[in-house]
Amino acid sequence: MKELETVQIEPKNRGASRKASTSGKSKTKWGRLWADVARDKYLYVLALPGLIFFIIFKYVPITNLVIAFQEYSPYFGVLGSPWVGFEHFIRFFSNNDFWMLLRNTLAISFLSLIFFFPAPIILALMLNEVRSSLYKRTIQSLVYIPHFLSWVLIYGLTYLMFSQSEGLVNKWFMSMNWETVDILSNPNYFWAMLTAQSIWKEVGWGTIIFLAAIAGVDPQLYEAAVMDGAGRFRRMWHVTLPAMRNVIMILLILRLGTILDTGFEQIYLMMNAPVTQVAEVFDTYVYRVGIRQGEFSYSTAIGLFKSIVGVIMVVTANRLARRYGQESLY
């Protein structure tokens, strides 16, 4: 019953003229509901374009996720393709490479969580301590730049810096008569290199949000802290960091939801034969099997698996955050 009522809300709302006529009947909870909706009709109007966007460009395509349970064929379409149940999931989980994919994905994700995630926070704190505003602005502008570069270019730059024949680093080693170092095709360095690349690219851009949070701190708090005889680090710890806490928590929860997402383009570009065993992740696998080999149902199943893990992670993290009295997402 209730569902029926809600489905009608939006159309009614658009034709705002017939306000009272339908609602006058009772003063029950339905009546109140209707009165509230009528009162806020303009808010719904404001939200409407966004809602339409989400429905058309997110939810309509998402209904096609059912092909994960089908043997999809364009000839029969989504409605006519034969159902195969969990076959694609079984194939995926029983694949020998599943554990390798899971290990690599998680490893890369956790490294990013441990090193990449705090990097902009630290940089923001450091920038905040700079006295000269000119110096601060200059450094800030410099570190933003890599954000604008595409991964293809960053791949090229990495090659220019670290490859054995062209790389600047190895050229320098050679000129010192040292052995050249194999960095790019060494499985031991691969994860570290990915993390370093991400940090290089996004650390500056990431500070924006934290610097803003810091800017919102009431200067009186600092003064009070100074009165109490707090040194720099203690002020950072007791005043600045708490001010950033909300932002950090929200970003952290969202990050956990995408724990199985790894930058596809970055890894795809950096991958080479010797590092495949540590480099292949869900995203690259989906691309290879799904797009190149045209197995759309199979790759959709993998995507669905990733999404479900993401939902679980977010809900759990959100719950934990709330339990410990932290900011939460919803």
């Binding site: 809602l51 939810y59 395509p61 998402i62 096609n64 969202l254």
Partner: peptide, 14 residues
Amino acid sequence: MVLLTFLFTPGLVP
């Protein structure tokens, strides 16, 4: 409804 779309990414073909 908004939050869910954060997690479910529709495929290219759809």
